[in-house]
Structure formats: structure tokens, C-alpha cells
Amino acid sequence: MSFDVLDEHEQGELVQKWLRENAAAIAAGIALGLVLIFGWRQWNNHQASQSVAAASRFQALTDAVDAKKTDDALKVADDLRTEFPKSTYAVLAALQQAEIAVGKNDLAGATTALDWAREHVRDDNLAALISLRQARVKLAQGDADGALKLVDAVPKDRYAATAAEIRGDAYLKLGRGDDARKAYQEALANPEDGMMSQGNSLVRMKLEDLGGSAPESPSIVVQGTEKPAS
């Protein structure tokens, strides 16, 4: 029994000796851990406050656009891009700037805004949308081949109908009527990306001008009978 007690005593002495010898390192480790925890919380708080501020600015941009205050909208968009360049709101602001520029027939300005958006976007879905808008600007500038390259780089499962329509427009500009017709038919067969009925009507008109016909609507079976999908 005395031997066991002696062992426990010796072990306790060894532990205390180790603690004395390493007290400074232990204290430094604890202090560093507290600093890291505090810094992480501060960083999270900063990120949250930045996100709220960027969202507020973007709302101001939206309000200015709705009120048709173009100069104010452009100023807010510039501020967003300068102060919150890593925010998705800044990318959306650049898209809005490009839209305003296109409305003024300022294709160079639209290209600059879209290029900035492309460089800063971090969302794949939004990146695909930017590429398609860049393709439209390329078409407006008469660069059909450049537009096709941009569209072909967009993943097939992203904005399929819109991509097909732009591809058709590019083929048409290049004098490739058969390819354009097929592209417009593809656009009408892929409405899942949210094309509005007005957009569908425009594609139908383009297709009819080429002598093509829209694909038939899929049929829905109801109690043993088939009815065209509305």
C-alpha cells in the first residue's frame, strides 16, 4: 500500500514539475486560443455587418432604378463595386450598370461592367447568366463568333432556352439558317429556365420567319385520354 501511495505522490510531483516548467507555454497557448476565438467572432460580426450594408445599398440601387433615376442608380452601383467588391450585391450592381448602358446603346460601357462582374462572381449560376449577357452584347457589336464561344462555354443545364435562343441569333447573323432554326426549336423545347411567354412568342416569330415550326406541346394523360399541356 505504501508503495502505491509513494507512486501516486511521485506522479503528482512530476506533474507539478512539468506544469511549472511549461507554465509560460501553457499560458501563451490559452491566450492564443482566446485571441483566435475572439478574432473569429469579430470576423463573423464584421462579415454580417458588411452583408447588411451591401444589401442596404443594393436596395437603394433598386429604388433608384424603379424611380428611373439613372444617375443615382449608377452612383450607388459604383459605390457598391468599390466598397463591397467581394459581395454578390456588387456583381448584381455591375449587371444593372450593364443593362443601363445597353439602354443607352453604350455597348463598350456594358462590356466593361460585364467583364468586371465576370471577374468577381463566385456563384456558378450567376456566372452563366453573365456569360449569356456578354454574348448578347457581342451580338449587338456584330461579333457572332464571339457570342457563340461564350454561349458554348455555358453548362448545358444552365438557362438552356436562353442559351439556345442566343445561339440561334448568332447562327442567323452568320447566315446559317438551318442551324438557327434548330436552335430556336431547342429554345422552345426547353422552357424550364423561366422564359416568359413574351420571350417564347419572340422565339416563335423568329422561327416562323425561317419557315420552321415550333415543337408540339407535350401531352398529359388524364384518365386514359391525352390532352395537350397548357
Score class of each variant (00 low, 15 high):
residue 2 S to F: 10
residue 3 F to M: 11
residue 3 F to W: 15
residue 6 L to F: 07
residue 7 D to G: 00
residue 12 G to Y: 12
residue 13 E to R: 13
residue 14 L to S: 15
residue 15 V to P: 06
residue 15 V to G: 04
residue 16 Q to S: 13
residue 23 A to I: 04
residue 23 A to V: 05
residue 25 A to C: 11
residue 29 G to Q: 15
residue 30 I to W: 05
residue 31 A to L: 10
residue 32 L to C: 06
residue 34 L to S: 15
residue 35 V to E: 12
residue 37 I to K: 02
residue 38 F to S: 14
residue 41 R to A: 09
residue 41 R to N: 08
residue 42 Q to K: 14
residue 43 W to T: 12
residue 46 H to Y: 09
residue 46 H to Q: 09
residue 49 S to Y: 12
residue 50 Q to Y: 00
residue 51 S to M: 15
residue 53 A to H: 12
residue 54 A to V: 02
residue 54 A to Y: 06
residue 55 A to S: 08
residue 57 R to P: 07
residue 59 Q to K: 14
residue 59 Q to I: 14
residue 61 L to E: 01
residue 62 T to V: 05
residue 66 D to C: 10
residue 68 K to V: 11
residue 69 K to E: 05
residue 71 D to P: 01
residue 73 A to G: 04
residue 76 V to T: 08
residue 78 D to W: 03
residue 79 D to E: 05
residue 80 L to N: 07
residue 81 R to M: 00
residue 84 F to G: 08
residue 89 Y to N: 12
residue 90 A to K: 02
residue 91 V to I: 06
residue 92 L to S: 09
residue 92 L to V: 02
residue 93 A to E: 04
residue 94 A to Q: 02
residue 95 L to W: 11
residue 97 Q to D: 13
residue 98 A to K: 00
residue 98 A to D: 05
residue 99 E to W: 10
residue 103 G to N: 04
residue 104 K to S: 10
residue 104 K to R: 14
residue 105 N to H: 10
residue 106 D to K: 04
residue 106 D to Q: 05
residue 106 D to N: 05
residue 108 A to S: 08
residue 110 A to G: 15
residue 111 T to S: 05
residue 111 T to N: 03
residue 112 T to P: 10
residue 112 T to M: 13
residue 114 L to G: 03
residue 119 E to A: 13
residue 125 N to R: 13
residue 125 N to C: 08
residue 125 N to Q: 11
residue 126 L to V: 10
residue 130 I to L: 00
residue 132 L to C: 11
residue 134 Q to E: 06
residue 135 A to E: 00
residue 135 A to D: 00
residue 135 A to K: 03
residue 139 L to E: 06
residue 140 A to C: 05
residue 141 Q to P: 02
residue 141 Q to D: 05
residue 141 Q to Y: 03
residue 144 A to W: 04
residue 146 G to L: 08
residue 148 L to V: 08
residue 150 L to K: 13
residue 152 D to K: 09
residue 156 K to C: 15
residue 160 A to H: 03
residue 161 A to N: 14
residue 161 A to K: 15
residue 162 T to E: 06
residue 162 T to Y: 10
residue 163 A to G: 07
residue 165 E to W: 03
residue 166 I to E: 03
residue 166 I to S: 03
residue 166 I to T: 04
residue 167 R to K: 12
residue 170 A to W: 12
residue 170 A to D: 11
residue 173 K to Y: 07
residue 177 G to D: 01
residue 177 G to M: 03
residue 178 D to L: 02
residue 180 A to L: 01
residue 181 R to A: 07
residue 182 K to Q: 00
residue 187 A to K: 06
residue 192 E to I: 13
residue 194 G to E: 02
residue 195 M to W: 11
residue 196 M to W: 08
residue 199 G to C: 12
residue 201 S to T: 07
residue 203 V to G: 09
residue 204 R to W: 11
residue 208 E to Y: 00
residue 209 D to S: 04
residue 209 D to Y: 03
residue 212 G to K: 07
residue 214 A to W: 02
residue 215 P to E: 10
residue 217 S to L: 15
residue 218 P to A: 10
residue 220 I to K: 06
residue 221 V to D: 15
residue 222 V to N: 12
residue 222 V to Y: 14
residue 223 Q to G: 15
residue 223 Q to T: 15
residue 226 E to F: 09
residue 229 A to G: 02
